[in-house]
Structure formats: structure tokens, C-alpha cells
Design a protein around this nucleic acid. Sequence first.
DNA 1: AAACTGTACAACCGCTTTGGT
DNA 2: CACCAAAGCGGTTGTACAGTT
Length: 307
Amino acid sequence: MGCKSSDKPKPKHRKGLWSPEEDLRLKSYILKNGHGCWSSVPINAGLQRNGKSCRLRWINYLRPGLKRGTFSKQEEETILTLHQMLGNKWSQIAQHLPGRTDNEIKNYWHSYLKKKVAKTEEITKTKTQCTSSSSDNNNNNNNELEYSSPSSENQADRIPSHQSLEKTGIKSPTNSFPHHDHLNYDFSKDVQASRSSLPKLFFAEWLLMDHHQAHGSSSANTVEPNLVPREGFGHGLSLQDAVMGHGFLMNEGIFGGHFQDEIVGHDEMLNSELKFEDQISGSGFVDFISGGDVCIDFNVDNDVMYI
DNA sequence: AAACTGTACAACCGCTTTGGT
DNA sequence: CACCAAAGCGGTTGTACAGTT
């Protein structure tokens, strides 16, 4: 924001699929300069696209750390569960799936999961009609996630089962449930509320927090109420929430040991040395964490993180 | 082999939100 | 507080490609 509107001789913008040359131009420009103001990106990068198109291309396709290929069973279940909780909040759902974009998840939902869910619902319906008096209804041995449409009028329908939440690695909100009336509680509000109430935290602060927790001085109960434990909501969310509040996605490496090996500029943010003992063992080298609006260079050597 | 159909996914469009002036 | 531009988001469309008739 606050972008100069003066640099806009408005040429007609190219549309349609991106060519490999355009991709290369955009990627190398952003890796070198950062995106800054999106509307100026195509001008500076010599592209005949609009800023919006560049942004989308970067976020959905060129951004480092993106996973490509088919969704795993785990990811699928996570999507189903979160969709049940949040509805079509694709960007929020994507926050729980590192390396996946909202667009990708949305497409996957419309082309595959939606049908699968409809089918499951239909089967369940016919089952219950056939065995309406049977007690089998409570003993569902099906491996599929139980699903009820978020569009349902009944709020109770939106509550995912404990089992399905556990399957996805998402902590059941009932652990710290603020209401006794579980059936009438809206989880999506809870998720949003927890996000909005989070403090803004710089990366270094988050690391220090992590360090603090790792040294046993803090059990889950002694963490300051405003701080979200990193493992608190599956992979991705707590970090995302902790660092600058939103829009930050750390590459999987931190969690899984797979590090990206490209370099993104902008290392002026911090100049500090931080212990990172609990997550990365041995020596390693990580070139960057990137995502959303933030790019941080760092490397890890003998458990010391240099930023 | 050509026409048709279905599917997956990339990209666009328009509305809403956010933040600066 | 109003206005404006940028960014974000979700719905929709367009396109390529594979499978079927």
C-alpha cells in the first residue's frame, strides 16, 4: 500500500497461461528484489501482466516451498475436517496445509472431494433409511471421515468428531473448551477469535518462545495465555499466527527436516544469533523461509541459527 | 480418426478488507 | 471521517488433455 500510482502507463495486459519465460522473469525478479508493491512488479520485471496476475502466479505457482502433485490421505482428511469446521474459507484451510495454496485446495475440493462427500452422504442416508431402527448408527466403522455439510442450518452438524480431528492431527478444541454446550458452539468463530487475539510477534521472538518452552520451564499450562504453542494446531498454524500475525508460511523443513535451497534477499530484518535446539539437530543449512510478505534468510549450523 | 465428454487445474473477475493519506 | 488504491479472498471461467463413443 502507499504505492505510487504515478508509475502506471497503462498498457494492455497479457492474459491467459503464463509462458516459461514470463515465469522466469517474475521469479527471478521477486527472488532478487522482493515483490514490494505488486502493481509495480510487472513494470519493473518487464512483464505485460497486471500486478494482480503476477501476485497470483507467484502465490499459486512460483513461490518456493510449494508442494505439487496429488494430495495425501492425511491432507485430504485435513481438508475435509477443516471444511466441515470453516466452510469455504480456503485461505484458512490452506494455512493448515504447508505448501498448498488456497486455489489448489479449492480446485481439489470442487473436482474431487465435493463429489466424494456427496457420495458418502448419500450412502449414509440410504443406510439410515434402511436401518432406521438399527442401533448400528452409532457404530460407524467406516474409514472415511464423517462429514456433514457446513451449509447445514444445524450448527451441531458442523462439529467434527473427536476421532476425525485426531486423525488429522488437529487438536480438538474441546480440550480447552470454553463452553459446556458443545453442540451449539461454533468452532470457526473460535479459530478466528484465537487468531485475532494473538499478539504480533517477530521471528526472533517466536524462536525465543520456542526455546523457552523447550527447556522445560514451561509446561503447556504455563505458557503465557496469549502465546500459542507451536504444536498447538497441527503443523503450520501456530508459527503462522505467531510470526507477524498472518500470511507467513515456513517451509516444511523446520518441521520435517526438508530444506529448500534457494536464496531470497532481504536479510536486513534481524541480526541475531539464536539457539534452536529442539527442532533441528546436528548441523544443517537452511537458506530461507519465505511466504506471504516476509522473506527471511537464515542458516543453521550446529544448532545455532543465524539470521 | 474425428467428435464428444469429463476432469483437472490455471487464471480471471468482482467483491471485500485493509491501510495510507 | 472519507476517499482511494492495494491486497486478499472466493466464485467462476477457460483451457489442455485424457478417455470414450
